[in-house]
Design a protein around this nucleic acid. Sequence first.
DNA 1: TATTATTCTTGCCATTTGGCAAGTATTTAT
DNA 2: ATAAATACTTGCCAAATGGCAAGAATAATA
Lengths: 178, 178
Amino acid sequence: MPADKSQLLAEGFEIFLLSKNLLLLEENKISRETYFLESGIIRSYTYDNTGNEVTTNIYTAPCFVNDFLSFFKQQPTSESFQALTDCTIWKMSYEQVQFYFHTYPEFREFGRMMLVTNYSALHNRMLGMIKDTAETRYLTLMQQHPDIFKHVPLKIIASYLGITDSSLSRIRKEIALK
Amino acid sequence: MPADKSQLLAEGFEIFLLSKNLLLLEENKISRETYFLESGIIRSYTYDNTGNEVTTNIYTAPCFVNDFLSFFKQQPTSESFQALTDCTIWKMSYEQVQFYFHTYPEFREFGRMMLVTNYSALHNRMLGMIKDTAETRYLTLMQQHPDIFKHVPLKIIASYLGITDSSLSRIRKEIALK
DNA sequence: TATTATTCTTGCCATTTGGCAAGTATTTAT
DNA sequence: ATAAATACTTGCCAAATGGCAAGAATAATA
């Protein structure tokens, strides 16, 4: 993206701080803004049938943080987004995003690519769930996001990997023994 | 979408037939077209570390069939798309899609919504993989796409659900006993 | 620093799922 | 219609993961 355009884009964002444990977006509310996480870690989570928390995603800065469905369709989200550390975040309103998309082809192309890239990442994670063992999924996450393990409780990581914290603890032990 | 616009869109597509077992798109090739499946069933698949086929998706008409990453980024796909029954399909070239997106805001909005909707569906499937048992995933699929079970071999359905065909067979037996 | 809360590990056993192979049923092709 | 290929089921046992609870380790707070 050309410098003048990205400059323009940056001007549409507004910065703010979010303290650890606070919610960026709450279940059942509509996502009225798009977010860019400059520093910190955020997770999204919901609940399973028996009322247990399930962490659906972990976002480590720098990256965009969005519930695409809620934001682009302006409908209630089914998840909550919570700061796992103190965070620095940039936000832009839905109307502003629409304006930029409508006015600048580069922006909407950027938006589409972000969606495509996220879709692809989710697809790969899905694939991992089908064809990899829990241990492999753990090792892959460990390799791609070692930073997560420094700041996020095992219980949350485990539920993101689709297993219990006990099992993850045992898996770590197994790996350590090698 | 207004009638005149959807009329216009339809004109950009070209129809063709694909016989059972043939490939619509082959691994490592670039997806040069977008597809709309009018009748039939298609699956996408790849291989795991030990060389076993893994079915990543099952498409039942009517629906769009795309490898978003390969199509929108014009890069090689990591999966093959295969007809599981004789299929009737509409196709439109990448260039044509870009032209429509560029020319008509309604079309690119439609395209974005398709991406968002697919993202959301994939997200829900992911959630199911994390928080549901294989039996629940089976029952959900059975409920949402009973048509699949009439035409797709168990082995393929099982790998789509993330289990082996033996296990799926046992799960069905368990359910039948109730 | 002392206290409390949270996180992590581990033992015990149950449940789920996988791997393999054989046998049965069904579909496809000749 | 017959033969061959494919699909489905099932028995046996192994491996992976879960559930619960207790204790150890670590982090947060007064």
